[in-house]
Design a protein around this nucleic acid. Structure first.
Lengths: 63, 63
DNA sequence: GCGTTATGTCAATTACGCTTTACATCAGAT
DNA sequence: ATCTGATGTAAAGCGTAATTGACATAACGC
């Protein structure tokens, strides 16, 4: 699973910490997801999709 | 997170075991997800969406 | 009755999502 | 040169996703 988090964040000029606050997770969680250390849980993926107003499929990519 | 797994499975007349085989998870996992014991991981949610050829948002519902 | 299939559930275990705390590096500003 | 913000990473711990194995029950055909 790859994801477009870093780009979406850059488009809005948000820091990892700012995004983490909006998502109510730790900065390390955002960092770990961006750097591909692990995938978010489904509920967190939904929160991310809601925040960016995009379908999950346009943020997270199979494979 | 609610989901429409049971209905989608019924529409295709698949047993929990048959679905588990297609998803390559245990029957207990399918059962646990259907009965709301827990949410699937994001990768598994994608596999489910792919299998039913539906967007994740049409299978899993917020709240 | 008996065997089979489907479903629900429990216990015990492994793997992973997410946390806090902490440390290191780099870029930019003063 | 120093301070600050941003990022990457690591360890330890907690909760949960997912596993296997097992047991119970209901529905069905034979």
């Amino acid at each position: 699973m790859k994801n477009r988090l870093k780009v979406l964040r850059a488009e809005r000029d948000w820091s990892q910490q700012a995004l983490a606050d909006l998502l109510e997770v730790s900065r390390q969680s955002v960092n770990a997801i961006e750097t591909g250390k692990y995938d978010p849980s489904l509920p967190l993926a939904f929160r991310i999709a809601d925040l960016f107003a995009l379908p999950i499929e346009e943020i997270f990519i199979r494979n």
